[in-house]
Design a protein around this nucleic acid. Sequence first.
DNA 1: TAGCCTGTTACGGCTTTCCGTAAGGTAATA
DNA 2: TATTACCTTACGGAAAGCCGTAACAGGCTA
Lengths: 222, 222
Amino acid sequence: MFKKVLVAEDLDSISITVIQALETLSIMEIQHSKYCDDAFLQIKKAIQDNNPYDLLISDLSFKVDHRENKLTCGDELIEAVKKIQPDIKTIVFSIEDKAYRIKSLFNNLGINAYVSKGRNSIPELKNAVESIFKTDEKNISPELEYALNDKSLHEIEAYDISLLKLLSNGCILDEISATFKNTGIIPNGSSSIEKRINKLKIYFKANNNVHLIAIAKDLGLI
Amino acid sequence: MFKKVLVAEDLDSISITVIQALETLSIMEIQHSKYCDDAFLQIKKAIQDNNPYDLLISDLSFKVDHRENKLTCGDELIEAVKKIQPDIKTIVFSIEDKAYRIKSLFNNLGINAYVSKGRNSIPELKNAVESIFKTDEKNISPELEYALNDKSLHEIEAYDISLLKLLSNGCILDEISATFKNTGIIPNGSSSIEKRINKLKIYFKANNNVHLIAIAKDLGLI
DNA sequence: TAGCCTGTTACGGCTTTCCGTAAGGTAATA
DNA sequence: TATTACCTTACGGAAAGCCGTAACAGGCTA
């Protein structure tokens, strides 16, 4: 079994249970951080001490409070950690169940397992830990397996996300066009952007821009 | 101390910790439900058995799954419970920290305490339980006290919420006007609705309707 | 090279939103 | 009753979004 595990989770009501669950798996050393920045520093220090972590279990969203943090969410934490310790195993444990989000975690961050916080997630979390210790296969909550096979999600790209974000910030077409030109994103003609928004509206069955943003927000795309 | 307490919480990772915390307060009987419908039935049965619950600790949002449920969220659960047992004490334990939401829980549902799930929420939850057992005062997470005093929230009424919801569903002004006329909501002139939307845009510092809906979604108003 | 396909950009009209102005209605007050 | 204040509704011009058409460029194929 893994020897040294770090849990990055802000809610005390959850971290307590997670740590107890890990203890039942006879893991020797279990550490816990309430902030992403702290988690990153602990992993960094463990490398320097020549006693690195085997596994990182991280939440995705962390509450903002008085503290200033460089890393504000689990995505950023994992990305930063992989840069200094590429071989560390990672499990994401989050309430998030949007296929798009989960998909990108496997594809872009190379996480080893995704466990969705739910009515029976502690046994699932234990299984995931055991499973990725034994094999190197990817592991995902049973009810979320459909996510990786959802073809439709291939069609929504980073370009669309940028577009939707700018729209949701109140930008008009010309402003979006200018922004894309400045950052070198193409296509950036206001007409092409208009067309792309139109495609998104058809895809998401939205009546207008307002409706489109409401749907994108509900889906967790932005 | 309270003798009989019900915890309505879907996430096992949280309910386990909450129950452990209640046990340290020497509460004799602690029950737990993962669904609002189950919680309601348990409370109903306890009344029939002449052994009612003293306290209900409930989450607000519950994940949807295969099961069909009449009560889908904590708000609905508490409202239903108060109808059959008006004197029951209620604590809401939720990640929600939007002032508007919390305010309406105290004012509309008459909850006794609100504890926000956070980095130190288990001690806060224990304090809340002890506090409302001793006194009959309202109790709220320290960092959320500002919520009840936030004057600005008085200005956002049910009318605005209906309006924002229709907007977010892709309705245009004339459709909203027609809907309001059908349901007897006034003002319902398309011009007045336009003005009202304008006020909301100023209030929330939104550039346009799209921006407004994005903000309303972020604030959890809709 | 000519033809075809695809994707980007441009243009024009039509609708909807945006925003200021003004008319009508009601209620409180002098 | 007259005045005032406030709210609702109506109207109109400007701005932005909506949607179809067309021009242009690059890549592929015959």
